[in-house]
Amino acid sequence: MIERINYEGLPQIAGPYVHAVKHDKTLYISGLTAYGTVAQSSDLVAQSKEILGQIAAILECEQRSKSDLIKITIFVRDIALLASIREQLFQFYDGCLPACSLVEVSKLIHPDLQIEIEAVVAL
């Protein structure tokens, strides 16, 4: 069974997708950004903090913890800025490091956006 979910408290969806999809004891979280939040026009650090907060909110709604994160994929517009969020990521993972991919991209959905993060969570 597949369940498509939009979470209250997260930025409203502006495209043809949902915040997450549950399938076979796995939660697939769509690429989240700071779009539509106060952090949208801020720097990479502020946008990263916003997105990690969104992921934390989803984990809380699903009664999951950070140790249930299986895989994170991070898309950044400037990979040279990775060092500015590295410590933030370590703190967020709280010792439960997931598998991770980091990809530099030329653009995201809006020119203000510096980062997008998607995740896979074990249920």
Score class of each variant (00 low, 15 high):
54 Q>D: 03
121 V>P: 15
41 S>K: 12
86 R>Y: 14
90 F>P: 00
113 L>F: 00
6 N>M: 14
103 V>I: 09
51 I>E: 05
10 L>Q: 04
115 I>C: 02
110 H>R: 06
58 I>K: 01
95 G>T: 08
89 L>R: 00
23 H>D: 14
91 Q>N: 15
97 L>T: 13
94 D>H: 14
55 I>C: 04
108 L>T: 03
17 Y>N: 04
31 G>S: 14
38 V>I: 12
111 P>S: 08
54 Q>C: 05
7 Y>Q: 02
47 Q>E: 12
35 Y>I: 09
33 T>M: 11
54 Q>L: 07
4 R>I: 14
41 S>D: 13
122 A>G: 13
40 Q>I: 09
109 I>S: 08
97 L>P: 00
5 I>D: 04
87 E>P: 10
72 I>N: 01
62 E>R: 04
110 H>M: 01
4 R>H: 12
58 I>Q: 05
46 A>F: 08
36 G>M: 15
117 I>Q: 07
78 D>G: 00
114 Q>F: 05
92 F>R: 00
12 Q>V: 11
14 A>I: 13
84 S>N: 03
120 V>G: 02
74 I>N: 03
60 E>R: 05
66 K>P: 02
2 I>E: 13
66 K>F: 02
89 L>W: 06
110 H>L: 05
56 A>F: 03
77 R>T: 15
92 F>H: 00
22 K>G: 09
79 I>F: 02
37 T>S: 12
14 A>C: 10
89 L>C: 05
67 S>P: 03
71 K>E: 15
54 Q>H: 14
48 S>T: 15
89 L>H: 13
65 S>V: 00
17 Y>K: 08
83 A>T: 10
7 Y>N: 05
71 K>T: 01
104 E>P: 02
107 K>E: 15
61 C>A: 11
57 A>T: 13
122 A>R: 12
20 A>N: 05
21 V>S: 00
88 Q>S: 14
53 G>L: 15
47 Q>R: 06
115 I>K: 00
64 R>P: 03
37 T>R: 12
77 R>G: 06
52 L>T: 06
119 A>Q: 11
28 Y>V: 10
40 Q>R: 11
114 Q>E: 12
1 M>D: 09
93 Y>W: 15
12 Q>G: 03
95 G>E: 09
56 A>S: 14
105 V>Y: 01
51 I>F: 11
